[in-house]
Design a protein around this nucleic acid. Structure first.
Length: 545
DNA sequence: GGTCCGTTGGGCGC
DNA sequence: GCGCCCAACGGACC
């Protein structure tokens, strides 16, 4: 490794995810080289995962993150340089122009194919240009490789949460959370004044290289592509807000200590969970910081409090995140890029899903005729968020429960619309809900009617998000097609006109679909047996000899 | 090869 | 609000 004397190197920190200053080990290790100048950059990359299939709410969230990052850097006497284009072209240009000698960035861990390809190219280019790399794995509580090593130990990587928790229990103490760099850590760039009006962060979603340059979707957008005005995001972007939300949500120590995910409500009009997921997925806050904050909050809970445990506790939610990343990482190691696909995905059952663009479109737009499903889908479009259990219900409805549509399509839609869209978590949950992987009890099926009726008998959630039904009596709010004409008339509901009739009869199709799933599982067994005909006998031989 | 378990199902009786 | 059954999955563990 070439060593360069202090003060003659020029550094670049490349933000991709990890849009924060605190607990950013790659940035810190770069600053530790005491560079003469540092250029914190973000590249608006029209082809990147973050922007591909990206709703205005997501675009807007990114803009807010960049604005906040720039503001925070300016308090340290630095700033964010926002570039536009293909990073593998634009970054080498800037290395040359700014005489960059050191480059740092947070590594992509789950194995998202575009990011991996991009980074491989950048690593090659950096080596060619004799640029020193300072990278760090800080997307998860522990680097995924460390779980892999711990797990292997002669065994397979666990594919259940229980198995993962065992691995996790044997991990060494977690790395300490790094404080944000101080003003003294940041050099004053020679040319800061000269560049003051260049490379400024975008101020609105339409400044991003989207949607003009990107073929976003085959279908018409659900929202006005240029307009976020009428949308009401769950939270706004940025590290500053992330910390505020973290502090606020963890203030009630007893709430934190007794949190049980399955007991939180997905129909409450105010989110019953922490709202931290968007910040975690964009890296506005580090998972370790959240972990420690949970520790601290629980320590303050009253001694009588019965503290909840993983997997249902808040710490458990952080474990799910790492577990999902590990599964994505492992799947992609064996078959690069397979994670959000059926083909080649070792964890995914091959199921012959139907392909009906009209049904898919009605699901996306919240026009299935099942008010509870439609309410959740419209909350997604409106706020960029649905409660986890709501996601379960709509994902089950689209796939194995009712419409029998390919989960890949549902995953793509979530990826575009969710503020907290996360490659690893999204893929895992669609595999789970469609009974394609990790969860196989297909006879346990969410009802689009009764699942939430007990939590929200008056249907307030439906009344909020499906306003055309708001005047229906509670008795029919979940099942408007059962209401007498006089009641529908009184409520201003015209079935098939201003609110659709149900696309399918759940009680019928859910049973039919169980039979289809049984068949798919049987076919899977046959394929497995055919794929490895000699393996089992030879193993037996070894054992008996 | 048997048994138990799996973050969060639905329906019923009590 | 709880316990039990429904019909019956794969994977871990013995």
């Amino acid at each position: 490794m070439t060593t360069k004397s202090k003060g003659v190197n020029n550094a670049m920190h490349w933000f991709r995810k990890g849009l924060r200053l605190a607990d950013n080990p790659a940035l810190v290790s770069c600053l530790e080289q005491s560079p003469k100048n540092i250029y914190p950059v973000y590249v608006l990359d029209g082809n990147s995962y973050e922007l591909f299939r990206c709703s205005p709410l997501r675009a807007n969230f990114l803009v807010e993150c960049l604005q906040d990052l720039d503001a925070n850097l300016r308090t340290l006497g630095s700033r964010l340089y926002v570039l536009s284009g293909d990073p593998t072209i634009i970054l080498p240009d800037k290395w040359n122009e700014w005489n960059i000698t050191d480059l740092s960035y947070e590594e992509e861990e789950a194995g998202e194919p575009y990011a991996l390809k991009r980074d491989t190219t950048i690593i090659d280019l950096a080596q060619t240009s004799d640029i020193r790399l300072f990278t760090a794995k800080s997307e998860t509580l522990y680097p995924l490789q460390e779980y892999m090593i711990k797990a292997k130990n002669g065994k397979a990587v666990p594919s259940s949460m229980t198995g993962f928790q065992k691995i996790f229990g044997g991990m060494p103490p977690m790395k300490k959370v790094l404080p944000p760099p101080t003003k003294e850590d940041f050099p004053q760039n020679d040319n800061l004044a000269e560049l003051s009006k260049l490379y400024l962060p975008p101020t609105k979603a339409t400044d991003l290289p989207w949607p003009r340059d990107i073929p976003r979707s085959e279908v018409e957008p659900i929202w006005d592509a240029n307009d976020c005005k009428n949308l009401t995001p769950l939270v706004h972007g940025g590290e500053t807000l992330a910390r505020k939300v973290l502090k606020q949500k963890l203030k009630d120590a007893d709430w934190v200590a007794t949190f049980e995910k399955p007991k939180t409500s997905c129909t409450s009009l105010e989110p019953s969970t922490t709202n931290l997921s968007p910040y975690l997925s964009w890296g506005c806050v580090s998972p370790r910081e959240v972990w420690v904050a949970l520790d601290n909050a629980i320590a303050k809970a009253s001694s009588k409090t019965k503290v909840s445990k993983p997997p249902v506790s808040l710490h458990g939610q952080m474990l799910w995140r790492d577990f999902n990343n590990l599964m994505a990482h492992n799947a992609n190691l064996n078959h690069p890029g397979c994670w959000n696909h059926i083909e080649g995905n070792q964890y995914c059952r091959q199921v012959s899903w139907d392909d009906d663009p009209q049904l898919l479109e009605k699901w996306k737009r919240g026009k299935t005729g099942y008010p509870w499903i439609d309410a959740a889908m419209r909350q997604l479009a409106q706020e960029g968020w649905i409660h986890h259990l709501g996601r379960h219900a709509v994902a089950c409805f689209l796939t194995r429960g009712d419409l029998w549509q390919n989960w890949e399509e549902g995953a793509k839609h979530f990826e575009a619309e969710l503020l907290d869209a996360d490659y690893a978590l999204n893929g895992f949950n669609w595999l789970w809900l469609s009974c394609s992987g990790f969860f196989y009890q297909y006879f346990r099926c969410y009802s689009p009617i009764v699942f939430q009726k007990k939590n929200d008998p008056n249907g307030n959630y439906i009344r909020k998000y499906v306003p055309e039904l708001k005047d229906l009596p509670s008795k029919y709010i979940y099942t408007p097609w059962e209401a007498p004409t006089s009641i529908l008339d009184k409520a201003g509901v015209k079935l098939g006109k201003n609110y659709p009739r149900p696309l399918v009869d759940h009680s019928v199709v859910s049973k039919e679909n169980m039979t289809r799933m049984k068949q798919a599982y049987d076919d899977h067994k046959v394929r497995e047996a055919a794929a490895a005909p000699k393996e089992k006998p030879s193993k037996k031989k070894q054992r008996t000899s």
